[in-house]
Simulated assay, not measured.
Amino acid sequence: MKTNRRSFITKSIIGASLLTNANLFSAQAESLDNLNKSKRISISKDDVILFQGDSITDNGRDRKNKNANDNWALGSGYANLAAAVLLEKYADKNLKIYNRGISGNRIPDLQNRWQEDTIDIQPTILSILIGVNDFWRTKDSGATNTPEQFKKQYQTLLQQTLSKLPNVKLIIGEPFGVKNVQHVTEDWFPDFAGYQQACVDISKEFNASLIPYQSIFDNAEQKASGSYWTTDGVHTSLAGASLMAKGWLDVIK
């Protein structure tokens, strides 16, 4: 009888503990779900969507073509693929979608052309993917720019943006590198992670949606090697561009 009583008490304690943990996990899941929902972006009628960044965004676009919703103006990368889905899905919204990415750009390059290539376009949704060159040039060209400096430059850029476009919705793309594919060697890490963390911190500070491209590509390598998704560890193949576009569209409600 004592054994049964002890067993009953033990089972009751374990059961209560499991129930408490289950409630805790449920609360955490709900909290995370609410967090994710709060950072997703709704598409509204007459939205102006601008993709900004470096060569990954540029992807061979015709820079002389300034038109919205134009194949040649959008390039052949993730920006084009994401734009195609948006324009088809929201055909009744009168969207205008632009690409102003320029190959080789770093944060200082964005700052130098920001008025003409961003503010003057008056985007209501602004997507920025930058950072890989800010790090890469420290490896191949002797540039000096720490993650802390990069973060301050990024903060300044967004502060200037919000001062002129206070209602713009921000999307921050995490810079990524696929290891052991041509340019992206093991010695990129852990240093490169500092620039990635800066983007994570900035997304929180400015209440921006964050696209975790590094983990997206890491997970994709479970299906195929890095060379399937990128040509050199940074620039995408067609499959990689589609992967990026899907990651981008995931932040849209």
Score class of each variant (00 low, 15 high):
residue 44 S to D: 15
residue 123 P to A: 13
residue 69 N to L: 01
residue 109 D to M: 05
residue 22 A to M: 10
residue 130 I to Q: 12
residue 241 A to Y: 01
residue 28 Q to P: 01
residue 184 V to C: 03
residue 85 V to I: 06
residue 146 T to E: 11
residue 148 E to I: 08
residue 140 D to I: 14
residue 127 S to R: 10
residue 207 N to Q: 13
residue 215 S to M: 02
residue 5 R to F: 15
residue 128 I to W: 02
residue 154 Y to H: 09
residue 224 A to V: 06
residue 41 I to S: 00
residue 20 T to D: 03
residue 134 D to G: 12
residue 47 D to T: 08
residue 107 I to N: 03
residue 203 S to Q: 03
residue 203 S to C: 01
residue 86 L to C: 01
residue 83 A to N: 03
residue 20 T to N: 13
residue 180 N to P: 11
residue 159 Q to F: 10
residue 211 I to L: 12
residue 46 D to E: 12
residue 214 Q to D: 05
residue 204 K to G: 01
residue 243 L to D: 14
residue 80 N to C: 07
residue 70 D to K: 00
residue 86 L to F: 02
residue 66 K to S: 00
residue 197 Q to N: 13
residue 109 D to A: 04
residue 147 P to L: 12
residue 11 K to G: 14
residue 2 K to D: 08
residue 105 N to D: 13
residue 147 P to F: 09
residue 166 P to Q: 03
residue 2 K to R: 15
residue 32 L to I: 12
residue 173 G to R: 00
residue 169 K to D: 09
residue 149 Q to A: 14
residue 20 T to M: 13
residue 230 T to C: 08
residue 94 N to I: 02
residue 151 K to D: 10
residue 132 V to Y: 08
residue 25 F to I: 12
residue 78 Y to L: 00
residue 172 I to G: 02
residue 61 R to L: 05
residue 219 N to M: 08
residue 132 V to W: 09
residue 192 F to P: 07
residue 54 D to P: 00
residue 179 K to W: 04
residue 139 K to S: 05
residue 142 G to C: 11
residue 61 R to F: 09
residue 194 G to E: 09
residue 99 N to T: 06
residue 39 K to L: 05
residue 246 K to F: 09
residue 232 D to P: 15
residue 244 M to Y: 07
residue 167 N to W: 02
residue 178 V to Y: 12
residue 29 A to W: 11
residue 5 R to T: 15
residue 218 D to P: 07
residue 17 S to H: 04
residue 113 R to F: 02
residue 236 T to V: 09
residue 187 D to M: 07
residue 188 W to V: 04
residue 95 L to C: 08
residue 104 G to Q: 03
residue 129 L to N: 11
residue 241 A to N: 15
residue 75 G to Y: 00
residue 38 S to P: 03
residue 187 D to C: 07
residue 147 P to G: 03
residue 3 T to R: 14
residue 100 R to C: 01
residue 89 K to S: 12
residue 197 Q to P: 02
residue 29 A to M: 10
residue 100 R to H: 10
residue 8 F to E: 12
residue 36 N to Q: 14
residue 15 G to S: 09
residue 34 N to E: 11
